[in-house]
Nucleic acid binder design. Sequence first.
DNA 1: GTATTTCCCACAAAATCCCATTAAATCCCT
DNA 2: AGGGATTTAATGGGATTTTGTGGGAAATAC
Lengths: 154, 154
Amino acid sequence: MDSEIFQGNALSAVDGKSRLSIPAFIRNALIPAEPRHIHLTVHGRAPCLMVHGDNYSAHMLAELDKRENGADPDAFDDAERGLWGMSERLNCDAGGRIVLSGLLREEGRIEDMALFVGRGRYAELWNPKVAVEVGGDRLKTIASYYLRQRGGKA
Amino acid sequence: MDSEIFQGNALSAVDGKSRLSIPAFIRNALIPAEPRHIHLTVHGRAPCLMVHGDNYSAHMLAELDKRENGADPDAFDDAERGLWGMSERLNCDAGGRIVLSGLLREEGRIEDMALFVGRGRYAELWNPKVAVEVGGDRLKTIASYYLRQRGGKA
DNA sequence: GTATTTCCCACAAAATCCCATTAAATCCCT
DNA sequence: AGGGATTTAATGGGATTTTGTGGGAAATAC
């Protein structure tokens, strides 16, 4: 199955109600259902969020289950709390938007703009300012491009 | 069948009558019946309670039954007392609330706030202050977020 | 009769839905 | 291949509904 492959990039605004448009390259990659389901998860290594569909979500859970009776039960518990307790499954409204919760917004350091970056089976969601600070060459290139575009307009 | 999956988090107040609002992400996950039934159980490993529906309750009992003729009869007896004697099946009132018993409240170390953390087939109920003390990274992040929110307002 | 528990109603804040408007792609027809 | 027309996508704002929480009245226990 080839479903849910995320390739591309886009910048969306986060409005006063914490609403965020899901760009077309993400929405069209999701398995077609009404409404579409978007998963938001914390990205352990980098200061950004992960965005994906039901498909990759199932994959993450399967990976976690393999650790269930592992050496460190406390680490397993916390990982499970991250996956079930901190992540969200949201449905896009008619206009293709979701609302960010305060916790995830803080965790992903998202302010008034959000940058989507495809990573294949999932995508990343960055604050573009943070991305230029901590990112590598490629990420910096993407983020600074949008900051120039958008910064110039406003 | 994906019934009774708990994903998300929320903080509720415990009022002077020991009443506690069941957050929407829990209530909507329960099998639809009027009134809704909430199970509260002690969580062996961590200083918190377990929250779930009829579904997972049946699962726990089945797990216990497998141990019935095991190596340690005394341990089995006490586990069964925990499951049948210490846990409660409560119905939500019209406003979506339950009342906490004194025993479980003490056992879960719940004071005037209660933090719900999804764990898939069940959810955890923490005193947020205890959660920041003993929790891992993820749990600490969730609990401290709400303590900042609520602490700042009051 | 007093104290506790349960039920019911009410209010305020927050989340959700819906519609309108703008901007940007895409199509289509010479 | 150009240029207008049509569709899709992105975002803003208002109205409606849900949710969380407080308090009082009725019922139950002591």
